[in-house]
Amino acid sequence: MTRTSFRRAIAPGIAALALALSVTACGAANESDGGSDTSTESGGGDLAGELAIGGSSAQEAAQNAWIVGFQDLNPDVSVTYDPVGSGGGRENFISGAFPLAGSDAYLTDEEGELSAAAETCGSDPIEVPNYVSPIAVIYNVDGVDELNLSPDTLAGIFAGKITKWNDPAITADNPDADLPSAAINPVHRSDESGTTENFTDYLDAVATSAWGGGVVETWPEGFGGEGAQGTSGVVSAVKSGSNAIGYADASQAGDLDTANIGVGEDFVEPSADAAARILEVSPAAPDQSDVSMAVDLDHETQEAGVYPIVLTSYLLACQTYSDATTADLVKGYMEYILSDEGQQFGAEEAGVAPLADSLQQKALDIVGKISAG
Protein backbone atom coordinates (compact mmCIF):
# COMPACT_ATOMS: atom_id res chain seq x y z
CA MET A 1 0.00 0.00 0.00
CA THR A 2 1.38 3.43 -0.89
CA ARG A 3 0.96 6.31 1.47
CA THR A 4 1.18 9.71 -0.14
CA SER A 5 1.42 13.01 1.68
CA PHE A 6 1.35 16.55 0.38
CA ARG A 7 2.22 18.57 3.46
CA ARG A 8 2.55 22.32 3.38
CA ALA A 9 4.21 24.45 6.00
CA ILE A 10 1.74 26.60 7.90
CA ALA A 11 2.01 29.32 10.48
CA PRO A 12 0.95 27.85 13.81
CA GLY A 13 -0.86 31.02 14.87
CA ILE A 14 -0.55 30.22 18.54
CA ALA A 15 -0.98 33.33 20.65
CA ALA A 16 0.46 31.83 23.79
CA LEU A 17 3.22 29.50 22.62
CA ALA A 18 5.46 30.96 25.28
CA LEU A 19 3.12 29.97 28.12
CA ALA A 20 5.08 29.76 31.31
CA LEU A 21 6.58 26.31 31.24
CA SER A 22 8.60 24.87 34.00
CA VAL A 23 9.26 22.29 31.33
CA THR A 24 11.41 22.91 28.29
CA ALA A 25 10.91 21.70 24.79
CA CYS A 26 12.55 18.64 23.31
CA GLY A 27 16.27 18.83 23.88
CA ALA A 28 18.70 17.92 21.20
CA ALA A 29 20.20 15.28 23.44
CA ASN A 30 22.39 12.83 21.61
CA GLU A 31 21.87 9.99 24.08
CA SER A 32 18.81 7.80 23.63
CA ASP A 33 19.65 5.81 26.73
CA GLY A 34 20.58 6.81 30.23
CA GLY A 35 19.01 9.34 32.55
CA SER A 36 16.85 8.59 35.51
CA ASP A 37 13.89 6.24 35.39
CA THR A 38 10.89 8.52 35.78
CA SER A 39 8.17 5.97 35.07
CA THR A 40 4.88 6.30 36.94
CA GLU A 41 1.76 4.25 37.36
CA SER A 42 -1.26 5.72 35.60
CA GLY A 43 0.44 9.11 35.45
CA GLY A 44 1.84 9.19 38.96
CA GLY A 45 0.51 11.55 41.61
CA ASP A 46 3.67 13.38 42.70
CA LEU A 47 4.31 15.40 39.54
CA ALA A 48 4.36 19.20 39.37
CA GLY A 49 4.71 21.76 36.61
CA GLU A 50 3.07 23.07 33.46
CA LEU A 51 2.89 21.23 30.15
CA ALA A 52 1.76 23.11 27.02
CA ILE A 53 1.18 20.75 24.10
CA GLY A 54 -1.02 20.66 21.01
CA GLY A 55 -1.74 19.38 17.53
CA SER A 56 -4.58 17.35 16.04
CA SER A 57 -7.95 19.03 16.50
CA ALA A 58 -9.58 15.61 16.20
CA GLN A 59 -7.89 14.72 19.49
CA GLU A 60 -9.30 17.79 21.23
CA ALA A 61 -12.26 16.12 22.97
CA ALA A 62 -10.15 13.18 24.12
CA GLN A 63 -7.29 15.42 25.24
CA ASN A 64 -9.67 17.55 27.28
CA ALA A 65 -10.93 14.40 28.99
CA TRP A 66 -7.43 13.04 29.61
CA ILE A 67 -6.27 16.38 31.00
CA VAL A 68 -9.09 16.32 33.56
CA GLY A 69 -8.29 12.75 34.58
CA PHE A 70 -4.53 13.34 34.75
CA GLN A 71 -4.80 16.57 36.72
CA ASP A 72 -7.19 14.89 39.15
CA LEU A 73 -4.40 12.42 39.92
CA ASN A 74 -1.74 15.15 39.76
CA PRO A 75 -3.24 18.35 41.22
CA ASP A 76 0.09 20.21 41.01
CA VAL A 77 0.27 19.77 37.23
CA SER A 78 -1.33 22.06 34.65
CA VAL A 79 -1.71 20.68 31.11
CA THR A 80 -3.02 22.68 28.16
CA TYR A 81 -3.74 21.33 24.67
CA ASP A 82 -3.88 23.71 21.69
CA PRO A 83 -5.86 22.11 18.79
CA VAL A 84 -3.87 23.79 16.00
CA GLY A 85 -4.22 20.79 13.69
CA SER A 86 -1.90 17.91 12.89
CA GLY A 87 0.35 19.96 10.64
CA GLY A 88 0.75 22.63 13.31
CA GLY A 89 1.39 19.97 15.91
CA ARG A 90 4.20 18.37 13.91
CA GLU A 91 5.67 21.75 13.03
CA ASN A 92 5.76 22.86 16.66
CA PHE A 93 7.14 19.51 17.80
CA ILE A 94 9.94 19.72 15.26
CA SER A 95 10.73 23.32 16.24
CA GLY A 96 10.83 22.34 19.92
CA ALA A 97 7.84 24.49 20.90
CA PHE A 98 5.76 21.44 21.84
CA PRO A 99 7.53 18.74 23.89
CA LEU A 100 4.62 16.44 23.03
CA ALA A 101 2.26 16.67 20.06
CA GLY A 102 -0.78 14.94 18.62
CA SER A 103 -0.87 14.03 14.94
CA ASP A 104 -3.34 12.12 12.78
CA ALA A 105 -0.56 11.28 10.31
CA TYR A 106 2.75 9.66 11.13
CA LEU A 107 6.07 11.32 10.39
CA THR A 108 7.74 10.60 7.04
CA ASP A 109 10.67 12.05 5.14
CA GLU A 110 8.66 12.95 2.05
CA GLU A 111 9.15 16.55 3.17
CA GLY A 112 11.89 15.93 5.68
CA GLU A 113 9.72 15.86 8.81
CA LEU A 114 11.03 12.58 10.22
CA SER A 115 14.68 13.59 9.89
CA ALA A 116 13.95 17.01 11.34
CA ALA A 117 12.17 15.48 14.33
CA ALA A 118 15.08 13.11 14.91
CA GLU A 119 17.47 16.07 14.85
CA THR A 120 15.34 17.94 17.39
CA CYS A 121 15.11 14.93 19.70
CA GLY A 122 18.66 13.72 19.21
CA SER A 123 17.35 10.24 18.36
CA ASP A 124 14.40 8.60 16.62
CA PRO A 125 11.14 10.26 17.72
CA ILE A 126 8.53 8.20 19.54
CA GLU A 127 5.27 7.66 17.63
CA VAL A 128 2.59 5.70 19.45
CA PRO A 129 -1.17 5.56 18.78
CA ASN A 130 -3.18 7.00 21.64
CA TYR A 131 -6.59 6.17 20.20
CA VAL A 132 -8.42 4.93 17.17
CA SER A 133 -11.63 6.62 16.13
CA PRO A 134 -13.96 6.43 13.15
CA ILE A 135 -14.09 9.43 10.87
CA ALA A 136 -17.82 9.89 10.62
CA VAL A 137 -19.58 11.24 7.54
CA ILE A 138 -21.92 13.68 9.27
CA TYR A 139 -24.99 15.11 7.57
CA ASN A 140 -27.96 17.39 8.16
CA VAL A 141 -30.77 16.69 5.69
CA ASP A 142 -34.41 17.21 6.59
CA GLY A 143 -36.41 13.99 6.56
CA VAL A 144 -33.37 11.72 6.17
CA ASP A 145 -32.66 9.85 9.41
CA GLU A 146 -30.59 7.06 7.89
CA LEU A 147 -28.16 7.35 4.99
CA ASN A 148 -26.13 4.67 3.21
CA LEU A 149 -23.23 5.70 0.99
CA SER A 150 -21.14 3.43 -1.21
CA PRO A 151 -17.48 4.44 -1.73
CA ASP A 152 -17.99 5.82 -5.25
CA THR A 153 -21.06 7.78 -4.18
CA LEU A 154 -19.26 9.32 -1.21
CA ALA A 155 -16.27 10.22 -3.38
CA GLY A 156 -18.53 11.77 -6.02
CA ILE A 157 -20.22 13.98 -3.45
CA PHE A 158 -16.97 15.42 -2.06
CA ALA A 159 -15.39 15.72 -5.52
CA GLY A 160 -18.33 17.92 -6.55
CA LYS A 161 -19.57 15.46 -9.17
CA ILE A 162 -22.79 14.52 -7.34
CA THR A 163 -24.61 17.74 -6.51
CA LYS A 164 -28.24 16.83 -5.68
CA TRP A 165 -29.48 14.72 -2.80
CA ASN A 166 -31.83 12.79 -5.08
CA ASP A 167 -29.04 11.93 -7.52
CA PRO A 168 -29.50 8.40 -8.91
CA ALA A 169 -26.30 7.22 -7.20
CA ILE A 170 -27.57 8.23 -3.75
CA THR A 171 -31.02 6.88 -4.52
CA ALA A 172 -29.52 3.52 -5.47
CA ASP A 173 -27.83 3.31 -2.06
CA ASN A 174 -31.05 4.42 -0.30
CA PRO A 175 -34.06 3.05 -2.22
CA ASP A 176 -36.46 3.58 0.69
CA ALA A 177 -35.34 7.07 1.72
CA ASP A 178 -37.28 10.26 0.98
CA LEU A 179 -34.37 12.19 -0.55
CA PRO A 180 -34.96 15.87 -1.37
CA SER A 181 -34.12 17.46 -4.71
CA ALA A 182 -32.05 20.07 -2.86
CA ALA A 183 -28.45 20.90 -3.66
CA ILE A 184 -25.79 19.17 -1.57
CA ASN A 185 -23.60 21.43 0.56
CA PRO A 186 -20.37 19.46 1.19
CA VAL A 187 -18.24 20.85 4.04
CA HIS A 188 -14.51 20.20 4.28
CA ARG A 189 -11.60 21.31 6.44
CA SER A 190 -10.04 24.60 5.34
CA ASP A 191 -6.84 24.05 7.34
CA GLU A 192 -4.05 21.52 6.96
CA SER A 193 -5.53 18.46 8.58
CA GLY A 194 -4.65 14.88 9.41
CA THR A 195 -8.37 14.12 9.39
CA THR A 196 -8.52 15.31 5.78
CA GLU A 197 -5.46 13.20 4.95
CA ASN A 198 -7.06 10.09 6.43
CA PHE A 199 -10.39 10.82 4.75
CA THR A 200 -8.84 11.41 1.32
CA ASP A 201 -6.55 8.40 1.80
CA TYR A 202 -9.72 6.31 2.07
CA LEU A 203 -11.33 7.96 -0.99
CA ASP A 204 -8.16 7.57 -3.04
CA ALA A 205 -7.84 3.90 -2.08
CA VAL A 206 -11.41 2.76 -2.72
CA ALA A 207 -12.73 5.21 -5.34
CA THR A 208 -9.72 6.56 -7.22
CA SER A 209 -11.59 7.49 -10.40
CA ALA A 210 -14.60 9.01 -8.68
CA TRP A 211 -12.40 11.02 -6.31
CA GLY A 212 -9.39 12.12 -8.38
CA GLY A 213 -7.97 14.43 -5.73
CA GLY A 214 -5.18 12.26 -4.36
CA VAL A 215 -4.21 11.99 -0.70
CA VAL A 216 -3.93 15.49 0.75
CA GLU A 217 -3.93 17.33 4.06
CA THR A 218 -5.14 20.55 2.43
CA TRP A 219 -8.41 20.33 0.48
CA PRO A 220 -7.90 20.31 -3.31
CA GLU A 221 -8.51 23.61 -5.04
CA GLY A 222 -11.38 23.53 -7.50
CA PHE A 223 -13.36 20.80 -5.72
CA GLY A 224 -15.82 23.32 -4.31
CA GLY A 225 -17.80 22.98 -1.13
CA GLU A 226 -17.62 25.00 2.07
CA GLY A 227 -14.39 25.20 4.04
CA ALA A 228 -14.34 25.30 7.85
CA GLN A 229 -11.51 25.63 10.35
CA GLY A 230 -10.82 22.59 12.51
CA THR A 231 -13.02 19.67 13.45
CA SER A 232 -15.31 21.87 15.51
CA GLY A 233 -15.73 24.21 12.55
CA VAL A 234 -16.86 21.40 10.24
CA VAL A 235 -19.31 20.09 12.85
CA SER A 236 -20.71 23.59 13.40
CA ALA A 237 -21.06 24.26 9.67
CA VAL A 238 -22.93 21.01 9.05
CA LYS A 239 -25.14 21.50 12.10
CA SER A 240 -26.11 25.05 11.17
CA GLY A 241 -26.22 24.43 7.43
CA SER A 242 -29.01 23.19 5.22
CA ASN A 243 -28.68 19.89 3.34
CA ALA A 244 -25.04 19.75 4.44
CA ILE A 245 -22.61 16.86 4.69
CA GLY A 246 -19.08 16.75 6.09
CA TYR A 247 -16.50 14.55 7.77
CA ALA A 248 -15.24 14.69 11.35
CA ASP A 249 -13.87 12.55 14.14
CA ALA A 250 -16.90 10.62 15.39
CA SER A 251 -16.17 11.59 18.99
CA GLN A 252 -17.10 15.16 18.10
CA ALA A 253 -20.13 14.46 15.88
CA GLY A 254 -22.52 15.21 18.73
CA ASP A 255 -26.19 14.73 17.84
CA LEU A 256 -25.64 14.96 14.08
CA ASP A 257 -26.70 12.01 11.93
CA THR A 258 -23.88 9.84 10.56
CA ALA A 259 -23.87 7.85 7.33
CA ASN A 260 -23.29 4.11 7.01
CA ILE A 261 -20.41 3.34 4.64
CA GLY A 262 -20.34 0.51 2.13
CA VAL A 263 -17.95 -2.35 2.91
CA GLY A 264 -18.37 -5.40 0.71
CA GLU A 265 -22.07 -6.19 0.57
CA ASP A 266 -22.94 -4.29 3.75
CA PHE A 267 -23.19 -0.74 5.03
CA VAL A 268 -21.32 -0.25 8.32
CA GLU A 269 -21.99 2.42 10.92
CA PRO A 270 -19.08 4.38 12.45
CA SER A 271 -18.88 2.67 15.85
CA ALA A 272 -15.76 2.53 18.00
CA ASP A 273 -15.64 -1.26 17.87
CA ALA A 274 -15.97 -1.36 14.07
CA ALA A 275 -13.22 1.25 13.72
CA ALA A 276 -10.84 -0.51 16.11
CA ARG A 277 -11.08 -3.73 14.09
CA ILE A 278 -9.29 -2.19 11.10
CA LEU A 279 -5.96 -2.29 12.96
CA GLU A 280 -6.21 -6.06 13.02
CA VAL A 281 -6.11 -6.19 9.21
CA SER A 282 -3.67 -3.31 8.59
CA PRO A 283 0.11 -3.68 8.03
CA ALA A 284 2.84 -1.73 9.80
CA ALA A 285 4.11 1.28 7.89
CA PRO A 286 7.45 0.68 6.12
CA ASP A 287 10.85 1.72 7.43
CA GLN A 288 9.78 2.47 11.00
CA SER A 289 12.15 2.62 13.98
CA ASP A 290 11.69 0.44 17.04
CA VAL A 291 9.97 3.35 18.85
CA SER A 292 7.36 3.91 16.13
CA MET A 293 4.03 2.07 15.91
CA ALA A 294 2.82 3.73 12.68
CA VAL A 295 0.52 1.66 10.46
CA ASP A 296 -0.88 1.94 6.94
CA LEU A 297 -4.61 1.47 7.26
CA ASP A 298 -6.20 -1.10 4.94
CA HIS A 299 -9.12 1.01 3.71
CA GLU A 300 -9.92 -1.57 1.03
CA THR A 301 -10.78 -4.30 3.50
CA GLN A 302 -13.89 -6.34 2.75
CA GLU A 303 -14.05 -7.82 6.26
CA ALA A 304 -17.59 -7.79 7.63
CA GLY A 305 -18.20 -5.35 10.45
CA VAL A 306 -15.09 -3.23 9.85
CA TYR A 307 -15.61 0.52 9.48
CA PRO A 308 -13.07 1.63 6.85
CA ILE A 309 -12.70 5.41 7.37
CA VAL A 310 -10.57 5.57 10.45
CA LEU A 311 -8.35 8.06 12.15
CA THR A 312 -5.41 6.53 13.96
CA SER A 313 -4.01 9.34 16.03
CA TYR A 314 -0.48 9.38 17.36
CA LEU A 315 1.45 11.00 20.17
CA LEU A 316 4.85 12.34 19.10
CA ALA A 317 7.52 12.57 21.77
CA CYS A 318 11.28 12.43 22.24
CA GLN A 319 13.12 9.57 23.90
CA THR A 320 15.25 12.05 25.85
CA TYR A 321 14.64 15.59 27.06
CA SER A 322 17.11 18.18 28.25
CA ASP A 323 15.75 18.28 31.79
CA ALA A 324 14.11 15.86 34.20
CA THR A 325 10.92 17.90 34.68
CA THR A 326 10.09 17.76 31.00
CA ALA A 327 10.78 14.05 30.85
CA ASP A 328 8.70 13.41 33.98
CA LEU A 329 5.68 15.33 32.75
CA VAL A 330 5.70 14.01 29.18
CA LYS A 331 6.24 10.44 30.32
CA GLY A 332 3.68 10.68 33.12
CA TYR A 333 0.99 12.18 30.90
CA MET A 334 1.58 9.65 28.11
CA GLU A 335 1.51 6.75 30.56
CA TYR A 336 -1.79 8.00 31.95
CA ILE A 337 -3.34 8.23 28.46
CA LEU A 338 -2.17 4.71 27.62
CA SER A 339 -3.11 3.18 30.98
CA ASP A 340 -6.30 1.16 31.47
CA GLU A 341 -7.73 4.05 33.43
CA GLY A 342 -6.85 6.62 30.78
CA GLN A 343 -8.13 4.51 27.90
CA GLN A 344 -11.41 3.86 29.72
CA PHE A 345 -11.80 7.53 30.63
CA GLY A 346 -11.19 8.58 27.03
CA ALA A 347 -13.78 6.09 25.81
CA GLU A 348 -16.38 7.16 28.35
CA GLU A 349 -15.88 10.91 28.06
CA ALA A 350 -14.90 11.33 24.39
CA GLY A 351 -16.17 8.20 22.65
CA VAL A 352 -12.79 7.02 21.35
CA ALA A 353 -11.96 3.36 20.78
CA PRO A 354 -9.55 1.94 23.37
CA LEU A 355 -6.41 0.30 22.01
CA ALA A 356 -6.23 -3.46 21.86
CA ASP A 357 -4.30 -4.93 24.80
CA SER A 358 -1.27 -5.87 22.69
CA LEU A 359 -1.01 -2.39 21.15
CA GLN A 360 -1.51 -0.74 24.53
CA GLN A 361 1.31 -2.72 26.13
CA LYS A 362 3.69 -2.12 23.24
CA ALA A 363 3.02 1.62 23.42
CA LEU A 364 3.63 1.65 27.18
CA ASP A 365 6.91 -0.20 26.70
CA ILE A 366 8.07 2.44 24.21
CA VAL A 367 7.00 5.34 26.45
CA GLY A 368 8.96 3.69 29.25
CA LYS A 369 12.13 4.66 27.33
CA ILE A 370 11.58 8.38 27.98
CA SER A 371 14.25 9.90 30.21
CA ALA A 372 16.30 13.02 30.84
CA GLY A 373 19.42 13.17 28.70
Rank of each mutant, 00 (worst) to 15 (best):
A327T: 08
V234H: 00
L355D: 00
E197K: 11
I10V: 15
D109E: 07
Y333P: 07
F158A: 06
Y321H: 12
A285S: 13
V291A: 05
T258C: 11
G225T: 04
G342E: 04
A356Q: 12
T163N: 09
I53M: 14
T120H: 06
E348C: 08
F223C: 01
V206P: 03
G96D: 03
I337L: 14
Y336S: 07
S123F: 03
E217P: 05
L154P: 02
A363N: 06
V367I: 15
D167V: 00
S115K: 09
A353N: 04
L364H: 09
D124Y: 00
D46G: 11
S322D: 13
S193A: 13
D204I: 00
P220Y: 04
F267D: 10
L73N: 14
E111C: 15
N174H: 12
L297H: 04
A347F: 02
W165D: 08
L47Q: 11
N64Q: 14
I67R: 07
G225P: 04
L355P: 00
L19Y: 14
D33M: 13
N166R: 10
F158D: 02
A248W: 02
S133G: 13
I370P: 03
T38Y: 06
V234G: 03
I366C: 05
P270L: 09
T38P: 05
Y202S: 02
P220D: 01
S236A: 15
L203W: 00
N30G: 15
C318I: 10
T258R: 14
G87H: 05
D33R: 12
V330I: 11
Y333D: 02
Q71W: 07
S236V: 02
T301K: 06
S123R: 03
F267W: 06
E349D: 14
P129S: 11
L17V: 13
A210S: 15
I337E: 02
A155N: 10
V132H: 00
D255H: 09
V263C: 06
A205Q: 09
I53A: 11
I138Y: 01
D191S: 13
S123L: 08
D296P: 00
A250R: 01
I261L: 12
G69W: 02
S339C: 11
V144P: 04
G87L: 07
Y81L: 08
L297Q: 04
T171H: 05
S242F: 02
D298V: 06
G213Y: 09
G96S: 08
F345R: 12
G87D: 07
S32K: 12
L149M: 14
T301S: 14
W211E: 06
S282P: 04
Q59M: 14
E303F: 00
L311K: 00
G262H: 03
Y314W: 10
A350S: 14
A244F: 01
I278Q: 04
V310A: 05
G34D: 06
A117W: 07
Q59G: 07
H299L: 08
D145E: 15
A11V: 13
